[in-house]
């Protein structure tokens, strides 16, 4: 499943769950409880609050471990062992990419910087979804590692607003199949 679709589904489920909780509470809101029922409800709410906290804590610990153990941000000051290194320079409003093609099945290191203002280096796959990105910053070089397995024409699109030429600031990047096609 594409990561963005998975995230979209999780968000939709989460927002729907919140909405459902509100609808349930609202449906009960107009029916006032007597004093005894209020006391019971207050005790139950206190217990439930503890459970909500415990579940969220479990989610926090488990989710943090799952998403941070393989940090997608590479260490910046060591040799990354990529198959190919691609130098990327952003400027108002162009990309200089060298080389501009790599063979499929490569682990590619993009070294991204800017000569003027902040730009955003976003690599769109042939199907039009973002595969990875990093910022292109003046005075800094950000190193991004991407596995490029699928041959085709990829698009580099600026994703950090950089002035009137921001939208057209894009370039093509080729991932060639074995045999060079």
């Amino acid at each position: 499943m594409i990561l963005q679709d998975m995230i979209g589904s999780i968000a939709l489920a989460g927002v729907s769950l919140v909405g459902l909780i509100f609808l349930v509470v609202i449906s009960q809101a107009g029916k006032p409880a007597d004093e005894a029922a209020r006391t019971r409800a207050a005790r139950a709410a206190g217990r439930l609050q503890g459970w909500v906290f415990a579940v969220l804590l479990l989610g926090f610990v488990g989710g943090s471990w799952a998403t941070l153990r393989n940090l997608p941000i590479p260490v910046q000051d060591v040799e990354l062992g990529a198959d190919h290194v691609v130098e990327v320079v952003g400027g108002m409003w162009y990309w200089m990419i060298s080389p501009d093609s790599v063979p499929a099945g490569s682990l590619v290191e993009f070294r991204v910087t800017s000569v003027d203002v902040n730009h955003g280096f976003a690599l769109y796959g042939p199907e039009g979804r973002i595969l990875a990105q990093t910022q292109a910053m003046p005075k800094y070089t950000n190193r991004l590692l991407v596995d490029l397995d699928t041959p085709g024409t990829y698009t580099v699109q600026c994703l950090e607003y950089c002035g009137i030429g921001h939208a057209p600031m894009k370039a093509s990047f080729q991932v060639t199949a074995a045999g060079g096609n």
């Binding site: 927002v15 909405g19 509100f22 955003g120 994703l159 950090e160």
Partner: peptide
């Protein structure tokens, strides 16, 4: 309260580094 609580769901997802890699500035 609904708007605040529901809006936090996609916000927290976006605050996750692996998700931000494909959602940042979208």
């Amino acid at each position: 309260m609904f708007g605040w609580m529901a809006g936090i769901v996609p916000a927290i997802l976006d605050g996750t580094i692996a998700v931000n890699m494909v959602m940042h500035n979208t």
